[in-house]
């Protein structure tokens, strides 16, 4: 814990660099593309339309039985945070390797390279969120104060993401196999998380595994908060918070233990 407090202090000292790196990430990505930032919205929109067609019209997956929620919104509320999670991890995984010239030449806190990609993905997420908001207004979805729960849930998600991001970034620098492992892992993980289906149709005997999967708890909590299911399950959320913190501590510990040999091995 103490080490993380020190790291945060270090990052604050280098905040100008962090800002510039986030800017680089966001600005450079869509240069020389005609639609530019519109891709950030177009991507999830297309994904949602096709997945809604496949899973609600063809497969007829039920949404929450009580609330009368259109499948597209039901899906989007979970899919957007999942995309944020998956995109953050994939880009963080390559963040150190992609900055090899910097790592071998100039000293600055290496965590900034990982953190800046994760922050850049949050900016994408906020842009994509406008599509969801437009949809919810169109369907006149009722919302209540429980929606404020999304803030602490988002906080937990980012802690969890950052822990894994640090681990994957550092280990991919040493073994490039990690990036392929990660993309496989993310594909499997998507189906084992209640995103295209509701959590309550998971058979009782498997439920314990879903409790242990922080992304399942997080995604389900978003749904409850946004789609009028009341306050999220506090016990599950607390467990997710504790697990996320442990993941962050372990990811950070691993990153720091490897940091000294980054420049030797990149």
């Amino acid at each position: 814990m103490f080490a993380i407090a020190k790291e945060i202090k270090d990052i604050i000292k280098w905040r100008e660099l962090l800002g510039q790196m986030v800017g680089r990430e966001v600005k450079a990505r869509y240069k020389q593309s005609i639609l530019g930032y519109f891709w950030i919205i177009l991507n999830p929109l297309a994904q949602m339309l096709v997945m809604s067609f496949a899973f609600s019209i063809i497969l007829r997956i039920p949404t929450n039985a009580a609330a009368n929620v259109p499948y597209s919104i039901f899906l989007f509320v979970a899919l957007l945070p999942w995309n944020l999670f998956a995109n953050s991890l994939s880009s963080a995984c390559g963040s150190l390797v992609g900055s090899a010239p910097l790592i071998t030449k100039i000293y600055f806190p290496r965590t900034i390279l990982v953190l800046s990609t994760v922050i850049a993905k949050i900016i994408d997420f906020l842009l994509a969120l406008t599509v969801l908001i437009a949809y919810m207004i169109y369907y006149q979805m009722p919302i209540n104060l429980n929606i404020l729960w999304v803030l602490p849930i988002f906080f937990i998600q980012q802690i969890f993401t950052m822990g894994l991001a640090l681990f994957f970034a550092a280990s991919n620098l040493l073994y490039r196999d990690i990036q392929y492992l990660l993309s496989l892992l993310l594909t499997l993980w998507l189906y084992l998380t209640p995103i295209i289906y509701p959590a309550d149709i998971v058979p009782e005997r498997f439920k314990v595994f879903f409790q242990l999967n922080p992304m399942a708890v997080i995604v389900n909590a978003y749904r409850q908060a946004v789609l009028g299911g009341g306050a999220p399950n506090l016990t599950s959320l607390s467990i997710a918070l504790v697990v996320s913190f442990i993941v962050l501590l372990m990811g950070y510990g691993y990153f720091k233990s490897r940091e000294k040999i980054f420049a030797d091995n990149i």
Partner: peptide, 12 residues
Amino acid sequence: ENIYLNGAILGL
């Protein structure tokens, strides 16, 4: 843009 980016990398 690169002036600002590299300046920050060098600690400016």
